[in-house]
Amino acid sequence: MTVGQVPFGKFIALLSDSGLRVRVGPFNIRINTKSVTLANHIYRLYESYKLAEDEFAEFHVQVIVVHPKRKIFSPHIRFFVDGHSPFPPFPQEQGLTALEWGINLVIAARVSHLLLFHSAAVERNGQVILFPAWPGSGKTTLCTALIYRGYRLFSDEFGLMDPDNGDFFPIPRLMPLKNESIQVIRDYLPEAILGHEIPKTLKGTIAHVRPPKESFMRSEETAKAKWIIFPKWVAGSSLSLEPLPDSEAFLLLASNSFNYEVLGEVGFQAVTHLIRTCSCYKLVYSDFDDVISAMNDLTD
């Protein structure tokens, strides 16, 4: 059963009382909020998320609207996990970003049985491409373009790898487009479903892409990685896809992981194995058609 199959009244009741339990990749998350605005956003954008009623939830998160006693202060939003708030307050309109970022943080801080790369990941023909990248390199935008052109979404944020066997876990979620990328995607992919625009967040204006239903239906199908590509969007550039030396790829990938050092020797061996079994590239692009056809050539 998916979120969209729950009647709205029951959905609201769950969120404000015992909690809405949803499957988020290999994890279950229990969400509580009494904010009706946020509930409306979640209802629309989480439509294809699977429910995890009566199952164990790893993470228990809450978004609370705080109404200050003195009138001169406007209400704000706080994110809590197990009664603890890791962030300063957010403006009231930013409930959805607070929720999504909070979930990112909790996963990154608490999960150590998997190796976590800060990376987008998509799959084609049974094999995964990793796009590890620094913030602002356009990995979410690239990822959005690819998943509307035949690639299966694993994640735009986390490469989740089982260090024992090298399997990657899909963790499809909303994908936050930032600033100009929002219009870029509206122009290039009119069919893409986007949430409302949230202005003035920490990262500028954000609008979330709702991933295609198929990525949720198949979210239990793991796959191994075959390509590691470090992307960079440069305005007006022509496409270049150049091999990256393994030693450099190792350092870039390891330092771009959330918990590489926490895993110790296991992390070292897992990254070594991953680099030895993958082809590593540096990608510079500006045009989506070019980059999609280059990725198709690579993965055919």
């Binding site: 990262k203 500028g204 390891a254």
Partner: peptide, 29 residues
Amino acid sequence: MTLQSGAALARTSNLVGSLEEDIPDDSTH
């Protein structure tokens, strides 16, 4: 050269990153 990795967490796109947008004078971010 020694790998400095712990920084990745603080660096997650949501927390850090340079601010490239226009900054209004009443910005608290």
